[in-house]
Amino acid sequence: MNIEKLKYPIGKFGKPTIITVDHLQAWIADIATFPARMSSEVLHLTDTQIDTQYRPNGWTLRQVVHHCADSHMNSLIRLKLALTEDKPVIKPYFEELWAELTDTKKMPIHPSLKMLEGIHERWTAILKSLTNDQFERVFIHPEQGKTFRVDENIGIYAWHCNHHLAHITETKKRNNWS
């Protein structure tokens, strides 16, 4: 199989020229439903299955689940910073190094699934309450040298949810796991 398709099973995020209310509603729904969708795909997997890499030299499914908890926790914090500070500079983190820590490589996935439930419940409550002005607030990502708007970041993270979920569902399909 094409390595690019394994790496980006749903393609890369494409930011719309104009972000509409329909985009935002769909993205928020993707974020809101992600924990349940993730749990339904991974809870029945064996340890051997959960320790399978989704692509050669890629993370295991275990690392993907833990990464989502880490990444989405950071995204919620970035959102809160953007809503409460003027153009905050966020703190990047080295996700590839976090993925190598013991909690990500060895721990059961249940703690991260519980984290995702709580993070997404709080995240969704905030997202559904945002005003037009709040969607336009920004944070600065120093590593990328870029300013991100809140509405754009919602789209990026809806994509992120679906991207990593597809790593799991595509791995299950390729291995004929029911």
Rank of each mutant, 00 (worst) to 15 (best):
N2T: 15
N2H: 14
I3V: 11
K5R: 12
K5N: 11
K5F: 08
K7S: 09
G11N: 04
G11H: 06
T20I: 02
V21F: 00
D22F: 01
D22E: 15
D22P: 02
L24Q: 07
L24R: 04
W27T: 02
W27R: 03
D30W: 04
A32E: 15
T33M: 14
P35D: 01
A36W: 02
M38R: 00
S39A: 15
S39C: 11
S40W: 06
S40R: 05
S40T: 13
E41R: 11
L43C: 12
L43S: 15
H44W: 03
T46M: 06
T46V: 07
T46H: 04
T48M: 10
I50G: 04
I50Q: 05
Y54P: 01
P56A: 14
N57R: 10
T60P: 03
Q63I: 07
Q63S: 08
V64D: 01
V65T: 14
H67E: 03
C68H: 00
A69Q: 02
S71V: 13
S71M: 10
M73R: 15
N74E: 03
L76K: 07
I77Y: 12
I77E: 09
I77P: 01
L79E: 04
L79C: 07
A82V: 00
L83I: 08
L83P: 04
T84V: 04
T84R: 07
E85S: 10
P88C: 09
P88K: 12
V89D: 14
I90N: 13
P92T: 09
Y93E: 05
E96Y: 10
W98A: 05
W98I: 08
T102A: 15
D103T: 07
D103H: 11
T104L: 00
K106S: 11
K106R: 07
P108M: 05
I109K: 01
L113Y: 05
L113R: 02
K114T: 13
M115T: 08
M115F: 14
E117T: 13
E117R: 11
G118L: 11
G118P: 02
I119D: 06
E121V: 10
R122T: 13
R122M: 11
T124S: 15
T124F: 13
A125E: 04
L127Y: 07
L130V: 06
Q134T: 07
F135R: 10
R137A: 09
P142K: 12
F148Y: 15
F148C: 07
R149M: 14
R149K: 15
V150L: 06
V150A: 03
D151L: 02
D151R: 10
N153R: 05
N153F: 12
G155R: 01
I156H: 10
Y157C: 09
Y157M: 14
A158T: 06
H163W: 09
H167R: 03
I168P: 01
I168R: 01
I168M: 00
T171H: 02
K173E: 12
N175V: 05
N175G: 05
N175K: 10
